[in-house]
Amino acid sequence: MFEIRKDASFSERNIPLGVLEVSYPENGFDRDALHSLIERELAALRDKYAGYDRKAVFGGNPYFRFFRKFKKTYPVMQQFETVMFKGRPFPEEDPVTAVPFLLELTTFVLSGTHDIDRIDGPLTIFTPDAKLPFDGMRGDSTHTYPNDICGRDDTGIIFSMIAGADNRTCVHPDSRHVFYPVFGTPDTASALIENALETLSGFVRTICPGAKTESAML
């Protein structure tokens, strides 16, 4: 596992955070398996949520409540609704990012993707007490939030749970050595994150049997 640290601002909050590190071999993806996995999981979701009601499904969701404190809409809820009910195609062009997206749709747990080879030094998880600026993954200027869950390396901030990934370490088409953070909230049970890590690992093994994986709970 690449080096990850927690500073006191995060560790004292006892918020679960999982990390899955993956080394994908070049040309090792089974795209037929990826497509079948996606179709199978989406079909199960359509059956499960045939009578979908947003309030019933997300009203008590800890991520929904956490984002609402920042006056934000939980992005996984938006993704779920656009794929399942508004006809948005599932983005399966890049298998590296398809698996965490599928994890989010099937578990409602928030994840992300970063290129380890673009990280400068160890990753430090922290909670800021102010709005700290950084460049978002689309090159736009964004910022952290007080009581946000964030990561930084020796160069700067690489993710904010609320604002998303940066544009330096976010994945590119050639990214093969990556890590997936699986975020918790103050109200999330550690078991939920542990199960999500195992589900994500299973997705990775399905689409790329030759991938090397290592997971950790922080």
Score class of each variant (00 low, 15 high):
61 N>G: 01
63 Y>D: 01
64 F>R: 10
65 R>M: 09
66 F>K: 05
66 F>V: 06
67 F>R: 01
67 F>L: 09
67 F>K: 02
68 R>L: 13
69 K>N: 13
70 F>V: 03
71 K>Q: 14
71 K>T: 07
73 T>S: 05
75 P>T: 03
76 V>W: 00
78 Q>T: 14
79 Q>C: 02
84 M>T: 01
87 G>L: 07
87 G>F: 11
88 R>L: 12
88 R>S: 08
89 P>V: 12
90 F>W: 11
90 F>R: 13
92 E>S: 15
94 D>K: 12
94 D>I: 09
96 V>L: 03
97 T>A: 10
98 A>C: 06
98 A>P: 09
100 P>T: 11
101 F>V: 07
104 E>K: 02
105 L>A: 00
108 F>G: 01
108 F>R: 00
109 V>D: 03
110 L>M: 04
112 G>I: 04
114 H>Q: 12
114 H>C: 06
114 H>W: 10
114 H>A: 09
115 D>A: 02
115 D>G: 02
115 D>R: 04
116 I>Q: 05
118 R>N: 12
119 I>N: 01
120 D>I: 06
122 P>I: 07
124 T>S: 06
125 I>V: 15
127 T>F: 04
128 P>A: 08
129 D>Q: 14
129 D>S: 15
130 A>I: 03
132 L>E: 15
132 L>R: 14
132 L>W: 12
134 F>M: 07
135 D>R: 14
141 S>W: 10
141 S>A: 13
142 T>N: 08
142 T>K: 11
143 H>Q: 15
143 H>R: 14
144 T>E: 09
146 P>T: 10
146 P>D: 13
149 I>H: 08
151 G>H: 02
154 D>L: 13
154 D>E: 15
154 D>V: 02
157 I>Y: 05
159 F>A: 02
162 I>Q: 03
163 A>H: 04
163 A>K: 06
163 A>R: 12
164 G>S: 04
168 R>S: 07
168 R>I: 08
168 R>E: 11
168 R>L: 12
169 T>R: 10
170 C>M: 12
172 H>V: 08
173 P>Y: 01
173 P>L: 03
173 P>D: 05
176 R>F: 01
177 H>Y: 07
180 Y>K: 04
181 P>Q: 06
183 F>T: 03
183 F>D: 04
184 G>A: 07
185 T>P: 05
188 T>Q: 11
189 A>L: 14
192 L>T: 15
194 E>G: 00
194 E>T: 12
194 E>V: 09
197 L>Q: 10
198 E>L: 13
